[in-house]
Design a protein around this nucleic acid. Structure first.
Lengths: 339, 339
DNA sequence: TTGAAAGCGCTAACAT
DNA sequence: ATGTTAGCGCTTTCAA
């Protein structure tokens, strides 16, 4: 079904005609090429302004398949997760500063969508990509990285290929949380995990186990539940834990959405936090203080993750040869009243 | 600084060579043109698969400036606001269903950024745009709409031009909230407004005033505070209200971020909700039940807003001549324990 | 300092 | 059923 794209019909040619010069000269003005007569330049600039002309980025990208076109792709696993929103904000700010535009896609942890959007990124000729792969073995992402597209992984790394990444110390963060619970005297500490094939989920479980071991608390299979990193999963798995014959006295929730789900279940059942059940979440939110009760949580520097990732990516685009780097940012336990 | 775009170098020509046909034939296969020999088609399809070829969308868009290129733009005022995230999810689902890709930009309520991204949308040749203008008189958006780009406004409408829009009944929603407070016996009801030049802020104030009037409560200038729709604004303005010589006994917060900010201030001061101060928010969040206390709030059907907007937009792209429509969705008061 | 022209990958009108 | 070719808007090499 054809549509009338009558808008944006001002192009180089029109500007050139009006200025009585060739399109090459106009192009030079736009790209700040030094070899243009200052008077010609001024005249053309005025016309550009008058006509409200802005260059067609699509044509530019097509032409410059070997030159930066100032476009970055961001592929987000779950836009409903405030953690990724915060990461995105960090990316945005840096991109804006360097005059890069962003094309953002959210694949909602759906690998089919992920593949579709990965193809999209490639076929939109983005200069580089920031993403959080679904797993360390994410073939789609690995392939794209192999093909030479500048890429930075956040939150999750890739195996079998050397790629820039910005991660956090998940194991340590989880340790902090669970150790704190143990020291407070809780002994039946449960862990609600996100998708187990995501490395961060496994790292957090490692930290959980480390802390149990160091505090001489035996690991209990029944106190670990695996879900899918979403709110609903937190609701359901928390209910399963509470229904256990020997329910936990504390819950360590694998991410912020799981935490919110667990809180919902606990509140629905009218249980008192932390008297009847303690809660520590992974991922702090700026409104965690307004939760009931103010939530103790492991804080990831989400904004900074995005900021670093964007800086790494732009620096790689500028100098493709530079060695890859892996940044691991620190996590921190924000102690409040939920345990 | 040049980069090596060595990736994605498979194009029509390569596929055509390998298949021993012309690029036109390959193009026909890709676009499901009927006039292709079934055997040729099968052979070409196999090669496409083997080579992992996907058509270059950039070239396609450049070529088809008068044909849909299956790309929609979404311009979000504040990605940190869960309301817009939910709207975005509605848009995404519909777009995905109709095989449209999305280019999402967030302008963080910054008009300079807004203009930049509006230009970007135009120069990326999107088929259509969904946005929430900064005001009814948003010249940038009006101009773009005038130029003929299919557009749907969400949350906020435009004056002086007939454009599709999906709104909610803000006035009624606010009325519901304030009326409920009044009937509960609160008499010093404050309103913390978002940016006043956004129509929804003003409509909510109208609803607030309507409810006061109908409940014979005199309107007090001092109990209305204007801010900028963000968390920090809620923190600050709530503090100002509490510092009043005659502080309010209830607060109606203009949006979800303001509500969270107000809650933060109230909790920091150790005030009891609702005994010492009641709170009703505009915008429900799925985790409102986990707030302290579970929050009473006006619910907007955010996901549906996005869904309807995307459907309207796609339908307009398909039939540009159809009359514009304005949808107004219902709001609803979710009663919990904060008043 | 400026212009002419090739070509990025694709589609569609026209030709065969 | 298939091929040839113009041209979308732009940058850049080469020539003037």
């Amino acid at each position: 079904m054809p549509i009338e794209n009558v808008y944006n019909n001002i192009n180089l040619k029109k500007v050139a005609e009006k200025a009585g010069v060739s399109i090459a000269t106009v192009s030079r003005v736009i790209n700040n090429s030094p070899s243009v007569n200052p008077q010609t330049r001024a005249r053309i600039q005025k016309i550009i302004k008058d006509l409200n002309y802005s260059p067609n980025r699509v044509a530019k990208r097509l032409r410059n398949r070997n030159v930066s076109s100032k476009l970055l792709g961001v592929l987000i696993p779950d836009i409903q997760n405030p953690f990724y929103v915060e990461v995105l904000r960090g990316i945005e700010d840096v991109a804006y500063l360097h005059e890069y535009a962003l094309i953002v896609c959210n694949f909602s942890q759906d690998e089919v969508k992920e593949k579709m959007y990965l193809d999209l990124m490639r076929s939109e000729s983005v200069d580089g990509l920031i993403t959080a792969p679904t797993s360390e073995e994410d073939q789609q992402v690995i392939e794209l990285a192999r093909s030479g597209l500048p890429m930075v992984c956040v939150d999750r790394d890739l195996v079998g290929i050397d790629v820039d990444s910005v991660l956090v110390d998940n194991r340590k963060g989880a340790y902090l949380a669970v150790d704190y619970l143990a020291k407070k005297g809780y002994t039946r500490i449960a862990y609600i995990s996100g998708i187990p094939k995501i490395p961060s989920s496994r790292d957090r479980e490692k930290g959980y186990r480390d802390a149990l071991r160091d505090n001489h608390i035996p690991f209990k299979e029944s106190l670990v539940k695996y879900g899918d990193s979403r709110h609903e999963s937190g609701v359901k798995l928390c209910a399963e834990l509470l229904d256990l014959e020997q329910p936990p006295d504390a819950i360590f929730a694998g991410n912020n959405l799981i935490t919110l789900g667990a809180l919902e279940t606990i509140h629905t059942r009218g249980l008192k936090i932390p008297e009847e059940i303690a809660v520590v979440g992974f991922d702090d939110m700026y409104w965690s203080i307004s939760l009931n009760p103010p939530l103790t949580a492991v804080r990831q520097p989400a904004y900074n993750i995005g900021k670093c990732a964007a800086e790494q990516l732009i620096s790689r685009i500028d100098s493709p040869g530079r060695p890859t780097s892996q940044m691991i940012l620190k996590t921190e336990l924000m102690v409040r009243n939920s345990c």
